[in-house]
Every structure is written in C-alpha cells, then in structure tokens.
C-alpha cells in the first residue's frame, strides 16, 4: 500500500513491462477499497478483538482485572438462562420469519397483478417499516393494553384468550405478541422487496414459456421461483439475522419478562452489561453469538449456492 503512494515507485512502474503493470493495477485496487476497509477495521474489527480480549478477563464494574481464561464462557454455557435466551430467539425467528416470508411473497404476487390503487398501497406499505421502534412499541402497548386496549378489549377478551390483564403480562402469550408485532412491522417490507424483485424479472422467459405451452403454475414454479431465488435467499438471511437480534420492542414492552419469558439474546446481553455489570461474561456472550452466526451464515450460503443455486 505504501509503495503506490511513493511517486518514485509509480514512475518506475510506468516504465515497466505489461506484466509488472498488472501488479501495479492490483495495488491501485487496494487503494480504492482502502477507505471502506479502514473504516471496517476501526469500527468493526478492533472493537471485536477487544471484546475477545476482555471476554478472557474478569471485568468487575468496568475495570479489566485478571486473566481468567475461558471461565466467562464456561459460566455462560453452563447457565440455563443463556440457553433459554437462545431458545426464545429460535422460537421468535422460527415463527416470525416464515410468516413474513409467505405473506410477503403472496402480497408481492397480488401487487404484481395490475390491481387498482397500487400507487396508493405501495407507499403505505412503507409506514410500519419506517416507524421509529419506540413509536411501534407504544402503539402496540396501547392496542394490547389490558382491559381497555383496542385489540385486547375487542378481540382477545371477547374470545377469552386473556382476561383483564395485558398479554405482555402473560408468560405464555407475551412472546407471541412480540412475534405479531414483528410480523406487522416487517411483512410490508418483504412485500415491497419481493414486489421489486418480481417487477425486475425479465419478460422474455415468460413469453417463451407461454408459447412453449407452460401452465400458470408451471410458470410460477419453474420460472418465477428460480429467478427469484437469489433475492429470496438474501431476504430470508437478513430477516433471520435481524429477528435473532431483536431488542427494541422487547426492551420497550416487556423488558424480557414476565420472568425471563421473552428474554432474547440481545436482551440478556443488555442485562449482563447494564444490570449485572458482568462485562467479561457479556463479551463472551457476544463472541459466542458471533460464532453461532458465522457458522450459520456459512452453512446457509453454501446451501443457497449449491442446492438452491441462489448466488
């Protein structure tokens, strides 16, 4: 990197043979990506390495103490609370993402038909996604408020699902309420993304398929789905990562409760730092979650690439 900024070496490169010049070209490429790489290293890699460092130490009340090896990791992995938070996230992801995906796809397919008022519907779909999380949380807190909330009073209590208490106060229902909010928040986004994808599909294969005699179902299964696969894979991956890290609505609505019924990994991580002041364990926690995601994303990528031919 340094050599290319050196004017003498630049002048020398300019006189050299074509093969040498290609080497110079690759240096120039590094120069172009340097700003991005430096930013990533400073704000991403350095803090992460520091997190690994302090995860190996005892850090009482923010002061890095003595080296304790893997004891922070052991403490976490032997703690049922950690595994419970992972389970909460898995339930959250496992229910919310498939629903968002299917509803998103169906919504996009409907939008893609030349329905009336499309110009009005599409901008409205942005509303839930663009709302600040605090507004979303307050909105749903009001709608699901015990005994007088719009949905609590009119739907949940009439159907005798809950009585005179907020769903957020029920250990059985709080998580599903949070999932409902996530679906409400992110399904429109999926619709818009898939709709954009459908609009961008090439027309020619459809014309050819028509003339080749393909049925509408065949066209969907054999042309639309394969052509949409890259977008679908990316969207699902993004939603899985995002939903796994869900924090804002939980923090604002239940604080992880009742008990720890809705304590997601992010919520637990927050508590480890700001309630229990266990920075060592919190860092170990971050590293473990990172490893889980690193493995998951790689497996997902390989499957998407080789089986689904998505990338």
């Amino acid at each position: 990197m340094a050599s290319i900024l050196n004017s003498e070496s630049l002048a020398r490169d300019a006189r050299t043979t074509p093969s040498r010049r290609r080497t110079k070209g690759s240096h120039f490429g590094y120069l172009l990506i340097a700003p991005t790489m430096i930013t990533l290293v400073v704000v991403g890699l350095v803090p992460f390495l520091y997190a690994i460092y302090i995860s190996l130490h005892d850090v009482p009340y923010g002061r890095v103490g003595e080296f304790t090896g893997l004891s922070n990791y052991r403490a976490l992995l032997w703690d049922g609370r950690f595994w419970h938070s992972v389970w909460v996230a898995l339930v959250f992801v496992g229910i919310a993402v498939p629903i968002e995906f299917v509803l998103g796809m169906l919504g996009a397919l409907v939008l893609n038909q030349k329905i009336k008022l499309r110009g009005v519907i599409v901008p409205m779909l942005f509303v839930p996604t663009m709302m600040a999380p605090i507004v979303v949380a307050l909105l749903w807190k009001i709608m699901l408020a015990g005994s007088w909330g719009l949905i609590s009073y009119n739907v949940l209590e009439r159907l005798k699902i809950v009585s005179e208490t907020s769903v957020f106060g029920s250990a059985d229902l709080a998580l599903y309420a949070l999932i409902l909010i996530d679906v409400w928040q992110w399904t429109p986004f999926m619709i818009i993304a898939f709709y954009a994808g459908l609009q961008a599909l090439p027309l020619n294969p459809y014309r050819a398929a028509q003339v080749d005699g393909a049925s509408p179902l065949q066209m969907f299964v054999r042309i639309t789905l394969p052509l949409m696969m890259p977008l679908m894979a990316v969207m699902v991956l993004l939603r899985i990562i995002d939903a796994f890290k869900v924090f804002d609505t939980i923090f604002l609505l239940t604080g992880g409760g009742p008990g720890n019924a809705t304590e997601s990994p992010s919520m637990l991580g927050y508590k480890l730092v700001f309630e229990f002041w266990k920075l060592g364990e919190a860092s170990a926690f971050a590293v473990i979650i990172w490893v889980l995601f690193f493995v998951f994303c790689n497996v997902f990528y390989q499957i998407a690439k080789n089986r689904l031919k998505a990338f």
């Binding site: 090439p202 020619n204 050819a208 028509q210 003339v211 042309i223």
Partner: peptide
C-alpha cells in the same frame, strides 16, 4: 386462444432462453 393452447413453436428473435436453466 391463449398462447399456451395454440400449439405453435416460436423461435424468438431475442432467443428468450431461460436464464436459470
């Protein structure tokens, strides 16, 4: 009739190949 049932084989000038196949 819709193109599907016309029983016509058309070679498109633009080829119109299926990119994913």
């Amino acid at each position: 009739l819709s193109p599907q049932v016309r029983d016509v084989a058309l070679m498109f000038e633009s080829y119109a190949l299926y990119p994913h196949l």
